[in-house]
């Protein structure tokens, strides 16, 4: 396998007395699609938040492309090319879809020249072709807040692509999306990975979707790493089934 783009080593995160993540170790190889599953409250989103710098971790370290990012803040990590999408959609509701896309360009330079710059036509072209990619081209001049939940989710995905990340953390990309559209979304995620070379690390509750998408899956339960392996192995793992059904 190629080299590990993201390394999470012995990460612990506590909220008061609640141990949300305990001694989590996992890694994401460059160019892969890795899944993260687990029952509700098992610490998946907490782990994502720790990785992107939303809150400090209590123990362990996180490395992205060989650099330690454990104590960096969110915008800085994002500018390095490690981006996340949210479980509840986060889009800019009072701006049009095209504007949402335009402002999602990579913000590598923080200088005044960049701050006060205009958008070159290439940016708008790229925004429009990505909106077409997710099927929102018709609605590109509507306010993003007026889109349906599923469409907002697609817009958020397109915004993430606009940012040209190296590694994209997706928090339940299929939640709230019409079942008939899920296949199309899975297809787009695969194309994103294959054509654009973006590594994907995906939290997902839809088992059929994640088994179809990921090449390797980590399963969390009660804040700890339960097991990991290829999809078919995870699917038949008694521990995983028990965790989901509440046995033990």
């Amino acid at each position: 396998m190629s080299y590990q783009q993201l390394e999470v080593r012995s990460v612990c995160k506590r909220f008061g007395g609640v141990v949300a993540n305990n001694n989590i170790t996992l890694s994401v190889p460059q160019g892969s699609i890795i899944g993260l599953i687990g029952p509700n409250g098992s610490g998946k989103t907490t782990l994502f938040n720790s990785i992107v710098g939303y809150h400090p971790i209590d123990k362990g370290y996180i490395r992205f492309e060989g650099r330690e990012i454990s104590s960096m803040r969110v915008p800085k990590i994002a500018r390095m090319g490690l981006l996340r999408t949210f479980q509840q959609t986060h889009i800019y509701g009072k701006m049009t879809c095209v504007q949402n896309m335009q402002i999602s360009v990579p913000h590598t330079s923080g200088g005044f020249r960049a701050m006060f710059s205009k958008y070159p036509p290439e940016v708008t072209d790229k925004a429009e072709s990505l909106l077409e990619f997710v099927g929102l081209y018709m609605k590109r001049h509507l306010m993003a807040g007026d889109l349906s939940f599923g469409q907002q989710k697609l817009l958020e995905f397109a915004m993430a692509l606009m940012n040209e990340p190296k590694l994209l953390l997706l928090d339940e990309p299929t939640a709230g999306i019409n079942p008939t559209l899920i296949n199309g979304l899975i297809e787009r995620l695969k194309r994103t990975n294959a054509d654009l070379g973006i590594t994907l690390f995906v939290i997902e509750h839809n088992m059929r979707a994640i088994m179809n998408l990921a090449e390797h899956i980590y399963c969390l339960a009660h804040g700890e790493l339960l097991t990991s392996g290829p999809p078919d192995q995870i699917q038949n793992d008694q521990q995983v089934i028990d965790a989901y059904l509440g046995a033990k």
């Binding site: 992107v52 500018r79 949210f86 889009i91 800019y92 701006m95 402002i103």
Partner: peptide, 29 residues
Amino acid sequence: LYSGRFGLAINAIRDDEDKAEAMGIHTSK
């Protein structure tokens, strides 16, 4: 200002500052 990146960036901060940070915008600046 409103016709370029500056306008969109502060609009983004208004609409969803967490998202703006997560997208790497230099929000404080």
